[in-house]
């Protein structure tokens, strides 16, 4: 493990749809303020977790949590996330509600496949290109789709914003575009809940489909958007 990264290391990912890269002192100082806000949020979260782990709130636990949180921030710095800085409560409720119902139906589905005697499910690995390519969105979408029906994340292509998704219990070619749409719908719900205005606009552009070789392409031709 190398030491702390400098705050402006050149390999920091610039969000394609987020704030513009710092092209001026104002933007740079605002970026710095955002980084500090993110660090303080992380610190507050860690202090909260520390107190929950000890089971009660006390001055000693607050101090201990503060020390542990500071140590974590100093010794394990994370790359910056590109959070738009705004939560939409209504969209967040929609996201949570859909997540719970899909988690329940996914669990019942997998449990049924598991106990059905003599049934061998078919699978497939499909590539889904997300419309919002920030790290935060990639990570949240990848987490969420692993818990909703049919899909499980296998690999991520961060530069191109591609998720490789394993689909369980494929019954025919029509299942694949359906699962692709489901991943994109999950992404849309996440962006509507936490994304910035720019990212929201990206949702309205047609999803650029993954160019796949024609021989194995299960998609109907209408499904193919323009590639960038």
């Amino acid at each position: 493990m190398t030491g702390a990264r400098s705050p402006a290391s050149p390999d920091d990912p610039q969000p394609p749809g987020g704030t513009a890269p710092g092209d001026g002192r104002a933007a740079r100082s605002r970026n710095r303020a955002v980084r500090w806000r993110d660090r303080l949020t992380a610190l507050a979260w860690m202090v909260g977790v520390w107190n929950l782990l000890w089971g009660r709130l006390s001055w000693g636990n607050l101090l201990g949590g503060l020390l542990v949180g500071l140590a974590v921030l100093v010794f394990f710095p994370l790359p910056p996330v590109t959070f738009g800085g705004r939560l939409r409560p209504r969209a967040l409720l929609v996201l949570a509600g859909r997540f719970v119902t899909e988690l329940v139906s996914a669990s019942i589905h997998v449990a049924r496949v598991a106990v059905q005697p003599g049934y061998l499910p078919r699978g497939a690995i499909i590539a889904v290109r997300l419309r919002v390519r920030t790290d935060l969105n990639l990570a949240l979408t990848a987490e969420a789709i692993s818990l909703v029906p049919g899909t499980l994340i296998i690999d991520v292509d961060r530069e191109r914003g591609l998720l490789y998704v394993h689909v369980l219990d494929v019954r025919g070619p029509a299942d694949l575009p359906e699962n692709r749409d489901r991943v994109l719908a999950t992404e849309a719900r996440i962006v509507r809940a936490i994304g910035s205005a720019t990212e929201l606009r990206l949702l309205d552009t047609p999803a650029p489909d993954v160019p796949a070789p024609a021989a194995a392409d299960p998609d109907p031709p209408t499904d193919r958007g323009q590639d960038q």
Binding site: D155, P213, A216
Partner: peptide
């Protein structure tokens, strides 16, 4: 043999 489609292999 259990996979219908494997777009990761094609990449």
């Amino acid at each position: 043999s259990l996979l219908d489609v494997d777009e990761l292999a094609e990449e």
